[in-house]
Simulated assay, not measured.
Amino acid sequence: MKGCLCIHGFTGEPWEVEPIAESLRKQKDWLVYAPTLPGHGPDGDLRTVTYQHWLYMVEVAAEELIKRCEEVYVIGFSMGGLLACYIAAKYEIKKLVLLSAAAYYLNPPMLFESVKATLHTQLTGVSEPDQLVDLYRHKMTNTPMSAVVQFMTAVKKIRPYIRHVQTPVLIIQGERDALVPRRSSEYLFRTIGAEEKYIHYLKDGRHMICHGFEKDQLMRHIHEFLIEKKDRRDEQNEISST
């Protein structure tokens, strides 16, 4: 059996990675787990938790999957991508997928573009698709500062682990992400120690990358990386040898 741990982002919930989780659950002999991080969800309180709680939970989840499954994969979105790197650095993980992973955060130009889109909507009554404006507004106005400090501490504490990741990794980033800048994915690709690593950019992808217009393209990249039996390096070797 293959196990897969799907980790959502800061202030988020499992629905952020649900399209991927549901797709993988349809595969034969796959056990997919997408937990709600401590302090998150409708009944959570981010004021009561620290980054250690998040690390502890994903470690326990990874250990449980390792006990039950022959191979374990980890997929992390946004802050969940950093937590996934931490797991991959400490445990024997088969493959790692990082989506809009927040090694760096806040992309001012794209955030400004989202604000402009909001004003356009308010002035003209015509909404532009995939802005997720209400979600951004809610997060900015309702997230406790103490939780933001914990998030920034988590990023700082996990960064040293990134260079120790030897697991084959796929990094996917939306070029129109308003919260995580492109340099975050570039840093991860450059710093991760794995020999086998791939990076893809979705031209119109925004932060909620699993729910955007390019979701099918995203899913195709993930399925090719996780499920295809043939190793991509073999394909590259065949092409170079012909």
Rank of each mutant, 00 (worst) to 15 (best):
P35G: 05
P129I: 08
G174M: 09
S127E: 15
T48H: 08
Y56C: 03
D29W: 01
T242W: 15
E186P: 02
Q131F: 00
T143R: 04
Y51D: 09
I192L: 12
L37I: 08
D29M: 01
Y104I: 02
E214M: 11
M140D: 02
R190A: 14
L111T: 03
E92T: 04
M152T: 12
I162G: 01
Q217P: 00
T242Y: 15
A103M: 12
T36D: 02
Q166C: 07
T36I: 10
E175N: 13
P38A: 14
K157P: 00
T191P: 01
W54G: 08
Y198I: 02
A84N: 03
T118S: 05
D43K: 15
V32S: 08
T118W: 06
I209G: 03
T167W: 07
H138E: 14
I222E: 04
D45M: 06
T36F: 05
D29I: 01
K67M: 04
E214T: 08
I172R: 12
K95Y: 09
R233K: 14
M208L: 14
Q217D: 09
G193I: 09
I171T: 07
Y33C: 01
E235N: 11
W54N: 10
I7S: 00
E186W: 07
Q173E: 14
L24S: 06
V60M: 11
D204Q: 09
H53R: 04
F112I: 04
V165K: 05
S240R: 15
G9M: 02
S185H: 07
K95D: 07
L96A: 12
A101K: 06
V169I: 12
